[in-house]
Amino acid sequence: MTSLSIENLSVTVGRKPVLKKVDATFHGGEFSAILGPNGAGKTTLLKAMMGILPYKGSVLSRGKDGQVLSLKSFSYLCQLNKFSSQLTAIEMVLLGLVHQLSWNITSEQEQKAETALKDLGLTHLAARQFSQLSGGQQQLVLLAQALVSEPEVLLLDEPTSALDLKHQVQVLDLARKHTRTNNTITIAVLHDLSLAARYCEYLLLLDDGVVQHSGKPDDVLDSEKLSRIYQVHVDVGCCSHGHTHVTPVRPLDTE
């Protein structure tokens, strides 16, 4: 089974230790989430996994046959930031295949890009300039870019941050479907704990660069644990559909 093991991973940015001896194991076919307050080290962890940031410790991913996976098997959707690019939406999606592209785009590659756009309902935006799209549309195009190469490891940094409710559900449904169909390791940084509870099988709760809790949603999403880490009173309950929901009530320091 595909797996990704992180052992003793530490990252220092400047002189500040951002991650301290993180251990975690993620499995193929499993949708996992990294949770934690701002500045906990969530994005840093994804970047270290992608090899963008230097780290101490080890990150080892193995495919179905036990072979070590290269970074070309990874896809990373970074946080949305403003950048004016004149590439069109379909060109942005094609860049997801950057390691496979030669001078000529094959009809198969073009088809893959079109399908990725279609899956997210973006076909009508194919020829639009990326910089002219709304934040939410840009996020969807970048998700299509992350999915087009059918990666074995999919890293998503706040994939729903710019999306409305319908698109949040659409994106996470698609990511989950992709995870299960292709036996992908999907790891998403999420701030919405209710969505994490609904979609993820495994949660990693970080605070101050250290893994505070990890495991199944029911084990991690405990009101006491969350209150201590997020410094806010939290209600954890169950909705009429049977999904866990997490509601922040008031900051602890207002008492």
Binding site: M50, G51, I52, L71, K72, F74, Y76, L77, C78, Q79, N81, F83, S85, Q86, L87, E91, M92, L95, G96, V98, H99, L101, W103, F130, L142
Partner: peptide, 23 residues
Amino acid sequence: TLPKVWALTALSSGEERAQALGI
């Protein structure tokens, strides 16, 4: 330059995105 056109195209989509694409 010509063999690097795709890496350069990725860079034209932004530094962080190019890094995210493994460039």
